[in-house]
Design a protein around this nucleic acid. Structure first.
Lengths: 271, 271
DNA sequence: CCGCCCGGTAACCGGATTTTCACAAGCCCG
DNA sequence: CGGGCTTGTGAAAATCCGGTTACCGGGCGG
């Protein structure tokens, strides 16, 4: 379950040193990003933080501000998971908090692991209902537009006709923005399990993808090979002068001009 | 806040008479429909009940069945709010339950009002993203008019004679406006629970729907297949010329010739 | 009790996609 | 400059997928 959660961004509004310390450690251990806030924070700041959830101790807020703050937060950030984690409380207070929009209410003292499990539960539910993918705006790199909601890449509205695997591969590469990924890692991310020794699937799909990307956007080069390591995704304009002459020689040596991608402007050179 | 909740359907699996009585009263008072279940219930039955949330006392289940049951319920009904409400429990148990998919875990004794507030909180998370469109006006796409209040689609007043499932499928597709939806997601939205591996129901109903939509509005194409992924709903006028004269298509291929792969062996054809 | 409607399942088929192979081409290092 | 290992290529072989049709069984109204 937790594996599906991925990395979360959490804000904690509290002042209880011991609790903060131990919770902080756990959050770090889980790889979640977190930020401690000492008290009342403008809601706009929370918005800017792009967090998935907030853990709030009502008692650190000035009493007359606590409820309005909770209401404001829940109202302004409907997608945010709100877990109130506070000392003793009455049923009425808990009901009030939950009705105001809090997602959960835990009494202190509480185990940080449970707090995290509750955060997960809250975020999980929120994500599920959104159908999994929604806030993933189209990613634009070079001339390419990668649209997760379409499982497809486009250039000026033109579809790349990528198959599912090709698209997932593209996405995995693009997600790494600029860094080299090893084959094994690519395989794990796209295929979902460990690559068998000697499997060339990644290479083959890299090729298919390159072909389709070049058809789509011939003046850019997107996938770069790192010998002995893997591949790197990085859009860069291709330099036309460099390859015009040499490539022409290589190509016309063979016979299969049409089989591969395109008849470029290698023509001009010798024609 | 509670005003937005509307009427909910809740199942309670418990045997604590006093608790059931007082909770039942509150549920009635709130106008929520509820059903008391004495113990282990086949998940299929829960599916058929179309409930929004379930309140579960783990201790009424045989100990070796409790966790698997919780897991099964959460796995099969991802949209269902699951509130575990049980006697004493350890942190580890609560964490386990929450990680297994439970949305909340309350210890007994607890105030029924709080249980209800927690149900609301859980269900609220669920509805938020889905847009809570109750008063969905007739949706018009292409020639089609989708009327939720009639469970039916029309073209210039003529009914499509869609069955309930067909209509729900259409609606689910249309709600996604333009995005590709995976089969599993479609199934989840229309059937309400997790699709079993190898289930072809979606495909078959897509076909039935396509047939009826085509009868209704032959000059439009609404449902598009995305191989290996799912379907996309997007009304577009069908191109009559395309199929009328296939030979013509080949000739005028000039426009998108390079868009698709097209390894054209230019010479063989007429040479 | 009969038949029809509707949802759901099984199976077949053709086409799309993925995997696997064999070999050519490249890169690195000594 | 040559060998050894890595990557690019092309295509065949193996799978996977979706379209379609037939059929089964429950619910319902006559």
């Amino acid at each position: 379950m937790s594996s599906t959660t991925g990395t979360l961004r959490v804000a904690v509004i509290d002042r209880d040193g011991a609790f903060l310390k131990v919770l902080g450690n756990r959050l770090d251990a889980a790889g979640w990003q977190h930020r401690i806030l000492g008290g009342l924070v403008p809601v706009e700041e929370l918005v800017a933080m792009k967090i998935n959830a907030i853990v709030l101790d009502m008692s650190v807020l000035p009493p007359e501000e606590a409820w309005p703050f909770l209401e404001r937060v829940c109202g302004m950030l409907p997608g945010l998971g709100v877990i109130v984690c506070t000392n003793e409380s009455t049923v009425a207070q808990r009901v009030r908090g939950l009705r105001l929009g809090a997602d959960d209410w835990v009494g202190k003292p509480c185990h940080p692991e449970e707090v995290m499990a509750r955060i997960e539960a809250v975020v999980r539910r929120r994500r599920r209902q959104s159908g999994g993918r929604e806030e993933r705006g189209p990613l634009v790199v070079g001339e390419l537009e990668i649209r997760a909601d379409q499982y497809q890449a486009f250039v000026s509205g033109r579809s790349g006709d990528l198959t599912r695997r090709e698209f997932e591969l593209l996405q995995a590469l693009a997600d790494a923005q600029g860094s080299v990924i090893e084959r094994g890692e690519i395989y794990r991310r796209v295929w979902g399990y460990e690559m068998a020794h000697g499997d060339r699937s990644v290479d083959v799909f890299i090729r298919k993808l390159r072909i389709k990307l070049e058809q789509l956007s011939p003046s850019w080069s997107y996938i770069h090979t790192h010998f002995g390591i893997g591949y790197r995704f990085d859009p860069e304009p291709v330099d036309p002068s460099a390859e015009a002459a040499p490539s022409a020689a290589a190509v016309d040596a063979g016979e299969d001009a049409e089989a591969t991608t395109v008849e470029r402007e290698l023509e001009p050179t010798d024609a």
